[in-house]
Each structure stands twice: as structure tokens, then as C-alpha cells.
């Protein structure tokens, strides 16, 4: 396992080869392939494709979650309503703020941490410790920080008091709720992301830096002209995954940001992220299930566009190291 990292980044380039290669023996066709693909094909059809089609159909209907059988078709009404729905635009804006803060801080911190580690230590304990938050369930993390941020009994409030500041109810404040939620997520994923970057750094040939220092380049110059460009493929990959994940943030908000009935928070809808708004429409509001499906369709289209854009960036940069 210690030699696990044998295949090097950029193996995608070699990956294209076998497809075009001669190997005539592999002209097996579906007769053979179907046996290998059958389970996953069933999984794909049953749990992704058919439900997606069903959900898209629902987005053109007025339907109550309580009684999905009694649906009436409403054409494009759900979509036109969404365009005029102030709550939708609010939730889109809130989500965007969350994504920007989350991805921004997390990427910078993780990158710094990865560079720090690659310079200082390969200690397993260090790496395992910073990975710890990642293995904890979101719900658990949400509850943990709900307590930590509690303005009366939470430790953050005590620290504020110690330094003579008034405690802030972070998760109930219209100003702070999104940054606080984003920070919770940063806490959970920075170590994980740093390890991904760390792995990427390991693949950068050491001699590039040696050559750099011989040429008298400063640390910062080398970071900008060697580390960043060579790390870009992994940077892009991590960004795609983080972005898709961040736009769909739900668990932490449900556990710590409130909003889903009764829990503290969701101050004036300032933590009503898109997923939460979809959830509310689907489950809490009357006859809005089709509306929720339309919201989800829009989110899906948006995510597709983002992914395609990002993948294009990723592909363009792939040959940097090869």
C-alpha cells in the first residue's frame, strides 16, 4: 500500500491509447460487455435515469406530496412562477454566498496546509489528524457546531467574552449565519482537500524546484510558476467536486442552520439555501411538490453547465506535466 501511488497523474493521456489501439482480441461487443455492465446498468436505469425522467415530468404538474397520484398538469407554470419568486432568487443568492466563502477559504487554507506539510513532514499522525473532521457525518458536525456556536453555553461565546466582546449568535444572525455555516464546512473539508493537494504536490519532480533555486527564484515565484501550474489538474478536479457539493449543501444547514422547522436559525431566510428551499416546497408547503421538482430541474441544469465548463478547463490543463 505504501507504493500505492504508482500510476502517475496524467495517466489519462495513456488512457486514450488502448481505445485506438489495435488489440483485435477485444472485439467482443455487447455479448460480453452486457454481463459486466448488467448490474450497473440496472442501477443506472432504476435509480438515476427513470427517476430523473419522472421528476422532470412532475415539474410540469401541480401535485401534493401527500397524494402524488392526484396530479394536474400545469404546463410551464412552475417555471414561470420560479422566475418571479423572490424567495427563489434569495435562496440562489444565499447559496452563491455560501459557495464563494466556502470554496474560497477552503481552497486557500488547504493549499497552504498542503505546501506546509510537504515542506515539513510526512508524519502519518499529522495527516490523520487533519483528516479527522472529514470522516464525521455532516449531521454530527452540524450538531457539534450548533453547540459550539451557542451564544449562552457554547465555547465560542465564552472566548468572545474572555476577550471582552459581546457574544454573537452566529447561527441566528442574518449577517453571520452563512459565513458560520461556510466555516463549519471549511472545518470539515480543509484537511481532506489538503491531503488531495498534498498528494498532487508529491508528484511534482523535486528537480524543478532545485533548478528554480539555482536560478535564484524566490519561494513565492516558485510557488506561482511551478507549484500552481503543475497542480492545476488536481486543483480543477477538486474544485468541480467541491462546487457541485457546495451548491447542494443541506445536511449541515438542516442540523445547524435551522430552517427545517423548529430548529433555531434560518434568520429571515438568510440561511435558506437552494436545497433547503426545494425541501421546504416538496415537504412542508401545500401542493408545491411539482414546484420543488421544477426548482431541482433548474439546479440540475445549472450544475451540468458548471461541470462542463470546469471539465473543459481541466482537460485543457491536463498536459502540463506529461
Amino acid at each position: 500500500m505504501t507504493t500505492a501511488a504508482a500510476p502517475v497523474a496524467g495517466s489519462d493521456a495513456s488512457a486514450e491509447k488502448p481505445k485506438r489501439g489495435k488489440s483485435s482480441v477485444d472485439n467482443d461487443g455487447w455479448k460480453v460487455a452486457i454481463w459486466f455492465l448488467l448490474p450497473s446498468l440496472i442501477g443506472f436505469l432504476v435509480f438515476y435515469l427513470i427517476p430523473t425522467i419522472r421528476a422532470i415530468r412532475l415539474s410540469f404538474q401541480k401535485v401534493s406530496i401527500l397524494n402524488p397520484a392526484a396530479a394536474t398538469s400545469v404546463g410551464w407554470e412552475n417555471y414561470t412562477d420560479i422566475m418571479e419568486d423572490a424567495d427563489f432568487w434569495n435562496s440562489a443568492w444565499v447559496t452563491l454566498q455560501y459557495v464563494v466563502i466556502n470554496i474560497g477559504i477552503q481552497t486557500v487554507l488547504a493549499l497552504g496546509l498542503a505546501v506546509l506539510m510537504s515542506r515539513l513532514t510526512e508524519s502519518l499522525i499529522v495527516r490523520a489528524t487533519i483528516l479527522l473532521p472529514w470522516i464525521l457525518p455532516n449531521i454530527l458536525v452540524g450538531l457539534l457546531f450548533l453547540f459550539i456556536f451557542d451564544p449562552t453555553v457554547g465555547i465560542v461565546a465564552q472566548v468572545f467574552k474572555f476577550f471582552g466582546f459581546d457574544p454573537i449568535a452566529f447561527l441566528a444572525s442574518t449577517t453571520w449565519v452563512i459565513p458560520a455555516l461556510a466555516l463549519i464546512n471549511v472545518w470539515k473539508f480543509t484537511g481532506y482537500t489538503a491531503l488531495l493537494f498534498f498528494a498532487g504536490l508529491q508528484t511534482i519532480p523535486k528537480m524543478l524546484y532545485e533548478a528554480g533555486s539555482i536560478d535564484g527564484a524566490t519561494e513565492w515565484q516558485m510557488f506561482r510558476s511551478i507549484t500552481i501550474p503543475l497542480l492545476r489538474p488536481i486543483l480543477a478536479l477538486v474544485m468541480v467536486v467541491s462546487l457541485i457539493g457546495s451548491f447542494q449543501v443541506f445536511d449541515v444547514v438542516a442540523a445547524a442552520g435551522g430552517g427545517v422547522q423548529g430548529s433555531p436559525g434560518d434568520p429571515l431566510g438568510k440561511s435558506r439555501v437552494l436545497y433547503l428551499y426545494i425541501y421546504e416546497n416538496a415537504f412542508l408547503f401545500q401542493n408545491k411538490f411539482g414546484y420543488a421538482a421544477a426548482l431541482a430541474t433548474i439546479l440540475m441544469i445549472f450544475l451540468t453547465v458548471i461541470t462542463l465548463l470546469q471539465l473543459r478547463l481541466l482537460r485543457a490543463d491536463q498536459s502540463d506535466l506529461a
Binding site: 450497473s40 443506472f44 432504476v46 435509480f47 438515476y48 435515469l49 427513470i50 427517476p51 430523473t52 419522472r54 421528476a55 412532475l58 406530496i65 402524488p68 457541485i244 447542494q248 443541506f250 436545497y275 426545494i278 425541501y279 416538496a282 411538490f289 421538482a293 431541482a296 430541474t297 439546479l299 440540475m300 450544475l303 451540468t304 461541470t307
Partner: peptide
């Protein structure tokens, strides 16, 4: 096609899956 399933929000397929 398989890869495109990456962008399908789970909340989207949840109810149809549930019914199934």
C-alpha cells in the same frame, strides 16, 4: 451517460426512488 448522473441532485430522484 453514466457520468452525467454525477450532476443529478439526490433530492431530485429521492421521491421517485421512494415510490419505486
Amino acid at each position: 451517460l453514466f457520468l452525467s448522473a454525477l450532476v443529478v441532485p439526490p433530492i431530485f430522484t429521492m421521491i421517485p426512488n421512494f415510490l419505486f
